[in-house]
Design a protein around this nucleic acid. Structure first.
Length: 554
RNA sequence: UGGGGUAUAGCCAAGCGGUAAGGCAGCGGGUUUUGAUCCCGCCAUUCGUUGGUUCAAAUCCAGCUACCCCAGCCA
C-alpha cells in the first residue's frame, strides 16, 4: 500500500530523543496497559501503535500489561480478545503478558510502607462523608477524623481489612497528602478498597484491591517503564503518580506523558458506550462489522496494515480532535486497491437475455484478477445467454452523462462483449425485470471494428453459473457526527447501518476465504463473512469504491 | 483570580526567531474495458484574539477569548 515513508515525528518521540541524547535513558521501555473489561477499539489501536511503534523504532521493548485491579468489571475472555487483537495488528509484546494483579503482593507491601511512614491511614468514613470532606473544585476539603490515627492502629486496621474482617464499603486505605490541594486527586486519595470478588487471575486470594492511581505508577516502576504514555484525562493524576513513586522505596523513575485520545466521526469510542451497544443488542456483538472495535474492523474487512497506516496518518498530539471517517476509509481503500483481487457481483439483479447468443452455450472467458498487477493472475469467467446486471445499470432513457445501458444503445459488459438493448419486460409495478439485447461477437477483447465508440462498461454475472449470495452493506452506525455528545446516543443509531442484499456473485468466489479482501468491480471492497455456510455465501462490504458520480449527478 | 490542558485550512497535522510541510476531503483537467485506480493542476499574504519585544514573530513576552479534563471505594 501507499505508505507514508517518513518515520512519525511527534512530541513524545521528541521527548524520547532528548532523554536518549542527554543520557537520562540508554534504552526505551513502554507498555500498553488495557483494563480487560471490554474489547479493544480503534482508539486503543492509536495507543498500541504509539507504544509498540516507539519500542520498534528505538530498539526498545513494549510490555502488554493488563490493568486488572477491578475484578467486578473484568473477565478472562477480554484478556484473550485483547491479546488476539494486539497480535493481529502485527505487534508482539516483550516476554509474557503482565498483570497488575501479578504485583498485588508488592503493592500491598508498599501500602504498608506508606502506613509506616505515616503517609496512609484507614478511613471508616462513609462514602457520603468522604465526598463532603473532599470539598469542591473551588473550595478546599477538610481532614478526615481518621487522618491522625496512629501508625500502629493503621497497621492493625489495614491488616484486618486485608484479612477480610471488614465488609465492603466499611473502610478504605487513603494516602495522607493534602485535603486543600487544587488537584482533586491529591485530596487524600483512596488507594485500597474492600472487595469480596473473585479475580480472573488471583482467584479468591484477595479481598482488598488497589486503585488505579496507586497501582499504575508502581507497576510501571516495577517493569522499568521509561515512558508511560496515557491519555489527556490523566494529566492531573500525574501529580499523584509522581508523589507515589517519590514516597516509596523503589529506584526506577518512570515518567508519564499524555496525548489526546482519538475521536472518530459517526461512532463512539468509549468502553462504556460500546458495552451498552452490545448489552442492549443494538449490534450483534463485539465483532459486529459496524463496531469500531478491532474485532469489528477485522470482520468488516479492514486489514491490520490499513489500521496501522491510519494511526500513522492521524498523528499524536495533545489537541482534542474529531477525525473524519473519510480518513479511515482512504487508508483501507489504498491498501485494498493495491492488494484485493477483482471479481464481479450483482447486488440488485435484473435479467439480461442475449437473443442472438446460443441457448445452451457457456463460454469460459479469461479475466485478470487485478487491472495493474499481473502477478495476481487470471480467472475463468463463464458467459452465457442469460446474465444478471445491476438494476441501476439500465435506463429506458437517459442523457449523455449516463454511461451505462440505455434502451437502443450499447454498453460494454466488463471482460466480455458489447451488447445493445432492444426491448424490455416490466413487472406489475412497472419495474424493469428483463432486458433483451443483441451482442456483437467481434468485440471480445477489442473495440468494435467499425470504430463506433462504446463509453460505458457494466459488470454482470452469468445467470446459470452465478452463485446466490447474501451481501451485507454497512453504513455509519450513527446518524450524527458526534453521538457521544447527544443526551441519548443510542437514539441516534442509524436504522440503515445494515442493509442486506440478495444478489449473485461469479462462481470463482465459491471457495473464497473468510476475511480475504475482494473488490467487486464498480461496487466496492468486500470479504466473505464467517456466517457463510455450504451453499450460502455471505459477504460484508468493507467500504464502497470512491464515487464521484452518484454524489453529484444521477 | 480553583487547578490542569489545548488553540495553524472543512478534518488530521508539520513547524521550535529567517518569511506557512504533508495527508484526508473538495475543485478543475488527462488516461482508462471499474464513473475506481493512476497522472497533472488548484486549494492559509496568514497561524484564536489584542498589544509588546525584534531588522525579522505561527514561533519570545503580556492581557483577553474559546474549548476540553478534574469533586468514583472506575480506569
Amino acid at each position: 500500500m501507499a505508505e507514508t515513508e517518513s518515520r512519525p515525528t511527534n512530541f513524545i518521540r521528541q521527548i524520547i530523543d532528548k532523554d536518549l541524547q542527554s543520557g537520562l535513558h540508554s534504552s526505551v521501555t513502554t507498555r500498553f496497559p488495557p483494563e480487560p473489561n471490554g474489547y479493544l477499539h480503534i482508539g486503543h489501536a492509536k495507543s498500541i501503535c504509539l507504544n509498540f511503534g516507539i519500542a520498534k523504532d528505538y530498539q526498545g521493548s513494549c510490555n502488554l500489561r493488563f490493568d486488572d485491579t477491578n475484578p467486578d468489571k473484568e473477565d478472562i475472555d477480554f484478556v484473550n480478545s485483547i491479546k488476539d487483537d494486539v497480535q493481529w495488528l502485527g505487534f508482539q509484546w516483550n516476554g509474557q503478558e503482565r498483570y497488575s494483579s501479578g504485583y498485588f503482593d508488592q503493592l500491598h507491601g508498599y501500602a504498608v510502607e506508606l502506613i509506616e511512614k505515616g503517609l496512609a491511614y484507614v478511613d471508616f468514613s462513609s462514602q457520603e462523608q468522604m465526598r463532603e470532606m473532599r470539598g469542591t473544585l473551588k473550595e478546599p476539603g477538610t481532614n478526615s477524623p481518621y487522618r491522625d490515627t496512629s501508625v500502629e492502629t493503621n497497621l492493625a486496621e489495614f491488616a484486618k481489612m486485608t484479612a477480610g474482617e471488614y465488609t465492603e464499603g466499611h473502610c478504605v486505605l487513603r494516602l495522607k497528602i493534602d485535603m486543600t490541594s487544587a488537584f482533586m486527586c491529591m485530596r487524600d486519595p483512596v488507594i485500597y478498597r474492600v472487595k469480596f470478588a473473585h479475580h480472573h487471575q488471583t482467584g479468591d486470594k484477595w479481598c482488598v484491591y488497589p486503585m488505579y492511581d496507586f497501582t499504575h505508577c508502581i507497576s510501571d516502576a516495577i517493569e522499568g517503564i521509561t515512558h508511560s504514555l496515557c491519555t489527556l484525562e490523566f494529566q492531573d493524576n500525574r501529580r499523584l503518580y509522581d508523589w507515589v513513586i517519590e514516597h516509596i522505596s523503589i529506584d526506577t523513575q518512570p515518567r508519564q506523558y499524555e496525548f489526546s485520545r482519538l475521536n472518530l466521526e459517526y461512532t463512539v469510542l468509549s468502553k462504556r458506550k460500546l458495552i451498552q451497544l452490545v448489552d442492549e443488542k443494538h449490534v450483534f456483538g463485539w465483532d459486529d462489522p459496524r463496531m469500531p472495535t478491532i474485532a469489528g474492523l477485522r470482520r468488516r474487512g479492514y486489514t491490520p496494515e490499513s489500521v496501522v497506516e491510519f494511526c500513522k496518518r492521524i498523528g499524536v498530539t495533545k489537541m482534542d480532535n474529531m477525525v473524519e471517517m473519510s480518513m479511515l476509509e482512504a487508508c483501507i481503500r489504498d491498501d485494498l486497491n493495491a492488494n484485493a483481487s477483482r471479481a464481479m457481483a450483482v447486488l440488485d439483479p435484473i435479467k439480461l437475455i442475449i437473443e442472438n447468443y446460443p441457448d445452451d452455450q457457456v463460454e469460459n472467458l479469461t479475466a485478470p484478477n487485478h487491472p495493474s498487477d499481473e502477478n495476481k493472475g487470471t480467472r475463468q469467467l463463464p458467459f452465457s445467454k442469460e446474465i444478471y446486471i445491476e438494476a441501476d445499470d439500465f435506463r429506458e432513457e437517459a442523457n449523455k452523462k449516463y454511461k451505462r445501458l440505455v434502451l437502443g444503445k450499447e454498453v460494454r459488459l466488463r471482460n466480455a462483449y458489447v451488447v445493445r438493448a432492444d426491448r424490455i419486460e416490466k413487472d406489475a409495478d412497472g419495474n424493469v425485470t428483463t432486458v433483451y439485447c443483441h451482442y456483437d461477437e467481434q468485440t471480445l477483447g477489442k473495440d468494435p471494428a467499425d470504430g463506433r465508440k462504446v463509453k460505458g462498461v457494466i459488470h454482470w454475472v452469468s445467470a446459470s453459473q452465478g452463485l446466490p449470495a447474501e451481501i451485507r452493506l454497512y453504513d455509519r452506525l450513527f446518524t450524527v457526527p458526534n453521538p457521544a455528545a447527544e443526551e441519548d446516543f443510542a437514539a441516534c443509531i442509524n436504522p440503515q447501518s445494515l442493509v442486506i442484499k440478495h444478489g449473485f456473485v461469479e462462481p470463482s468466489l465459491a471457495d473464497a476465504e473468510i476475511g480475504n479482501a475482494l473488490q467487486f468491480e464498480r461496487t466496492g471492497y468486500f470479504c466473505k463473512d464467517k456466517d457463510s455456510r455450504e451453499g450460502r455465501l455471505v459477504f460484508n462490504r468493507t467500504v464502497g469504491l470512491r464515487d464521484t458520480w452518484t454524489k453529484t449527478d444521477n
